[in-house]
Amino acid sequence: MVVTLERVPTVAPAVAMRGASVRFGERTLWDDLDLDVARGEFLAVLGPNGSGKTTLIRVLLGLLPLSRGEVRIGGAAPRRGSPTIGYVPQQKALDPDLPLRGRDLVGLGLDGHRLGVGLRGRRERRARVDAALASVGGTAYAHSPVGRLSGGEQQRLRVAQALVGDPDVLLCDEPLLSLDLAHQRTVTDLIDARRRDHDTAVLFVTHEINPVLPLVDRVLYLVDGRFRIGPPSEVMTSAVLSELYGTEVDVLRVRDRLVVVGADGRNGVHH
């Protein structure tokens, strides 16, 4: 939090939500959510399956309207295709025979929404794509078919694809899924460097807080319509999580890791 206070106290927050609710029919995913994410802040979004983490990202992308409340991103209402947002989607298998190379995937993140075939400005485009690829260590497989790459390689290309457009807000939906420890480091370091150098706000959905624990400014923990926002030291406690899950949950600190132990498995406590 120190980061955010000393940096840009006067500018509008990167993300602001007031009394935000999302309802599907009878079901309320979350209700009355107030959230400010400052520029350069790293917010981890945690919660069990189906708690509405991806839905929150869809709201911020302008793909889903709120049922109630207000949301601003960069001071304006969310809209599809905002150039100030980078997006790393929740992982989905790509067809192995898809005629698309790694560098094409990254390039589409830069200008895939533009009309035309893209003959103008090719040199600059190439340089930016190359730089994005290099930053995730993806140069070696830039020319391979994306569908044939490993899940981790695809995920790193996704990060490059999200960063190549130079975003102010980065929305990541479980970007660490299927990455080994070393590559988790690569990706988290990359995202951390990005927000330090460019003041990019990061919303980072994850099931596993430990890989990002040293970077996290605050946590948004969603469970079954209830939520809690605060620094990890305040949210990731036995008392708070027990209250959120409505059952006894223990948070243990083992060296510099947090281990969350549910009283039983029913609530799907992750970590």
Binding site: L61, L63, R79, R80, G81, S82, I85, Y87, P89, K92, L98, L100, D104, L105, L108, G109, G112, H113, Q161
Partner: peptide, 14 residues
């Protein structure tokens, strides 16, 4: 091309 190969991100990019 974007919509045909990567529809999820394409939608998000407008």
């Amino acid at each position: 091309l974007f919509a045909s190969t990567d529809p999820d991100v394409a939608v998000a990019r407008g």
